[in-house]
Nucleic acid binder design. Structure first.
Lengths: 160, 160
DNA sequence: TTAGCTGCAAAAGGTTTGCAAATTA
DNA sequence: TAATTTGCAAACCTTTTGCAGCTAA
């Protein structure tokens, strides 16, 4: 794969090299896929969301503001294709729809079971636990496929 | 609440005081609920499952072998009532239906993303992490509402 | 040219809800 | 008796699928 990692600053809050749509589309093509207008729009929307995690409905809405006739099934099929390429992944933050985001393996989610607030935390807080589980069970925890539930500071100081 | 904690050994693998159906039914009654035949059967099934986590469909099937005409909706409504009483809780081990189990807060689940094997681990392996998250974010992780994903020993030694 | 996408509509899977009849306390 | 549960059927929400036509490579 020869997708060049462009350095064009986009709208990300960080100063890491920006991932640009063309890179992603190129990977899609390289894997035998086609680049179509709906796919461009979907990638654009996902990039435009920055760190925010969008669910399928939000992606549909945003994509339709660019390209009104895109079907839901196209969204689901495209995000599945992008997940296969490990470009994005999905997380279950709570009950309800899954949310999609770029595949940085650098954060996890705590979700308050009372107010449903989401707290993002760096994945390396799990390093010790991960080592432990590896040693004891041979299990490698990977991914943030599911959030971790609990109670946030605000709710804890609230009466039940 | 005065539900006596009976010590009758049932079929649990552990030697903790067995929770008996009557205790649970009494709590249901104490909270203003009614004790009905379907509810008895559901509690029986849940108790009979011991440590196993049953999903709604499995509960329905098992309950119907005792009481053939119980509706699915009754199962869902009853497990919801039992969750409100904190007698049971549900976990999402993977995609697919939730699973229900008695509310011991003593274990967590690792689920292999490849073979879907479930590894149960003691919750106290999370103690350090929990302290950390509390200190840094005021967040109290609680519950095993979602499993932790990763890869099990067997799958890790397998070619991708 | 042809494998791969698309929109549409229908279906699937899991769970929830409205309601009138039945049951519990 | 009054409040709660029940079974049934229908609805719900999210996601998947089948298919014929369209399109990128």
């Amino acid at each position: 794969m020869t997708a060049k990692t462009a350095r064009t600053a986009k709208k990300g809050p960080s100063s890491q090299p920006a991932v640009v749509a063309e890179d992603i589309l190129a990977r899609l093509r390289a894997s035998g896929g086609r680049v179509t207008a709906p796919r461009r729009a979907i990638v654009e929307v996902l990039l435009g969301a920055g760190q925010r995690h969008l669910n399928a409905e939000e992606i549909v809405d945003a994509v339709r503001s660019l390209l009104p006739d895109v079907a839901e099934s196209t969204i689901y099929r495209t995000v599945a294709a992008l997940e296969d390429l490990a470009v994005i992944s999905h997380v279950h933050l709570d009950h309800g729809p899954a949310t999609f985001h770029f595949g940085d393996r650098t954060h996890r989610h705590l979700v308050c079971r009372r107010c449903h607030t989401i707290v993002e935390i760096p994945a390396d807080l799990f390093a010790d636990l991960a080592r432990d589980l590896d040693r004891r069970y041979g299990f490698s925890i990977a991914g943030e496929h599911f959030a971790i539930n609990g109670e946030c500071r605000a709710c804890r100081s609230q009466p039940t």
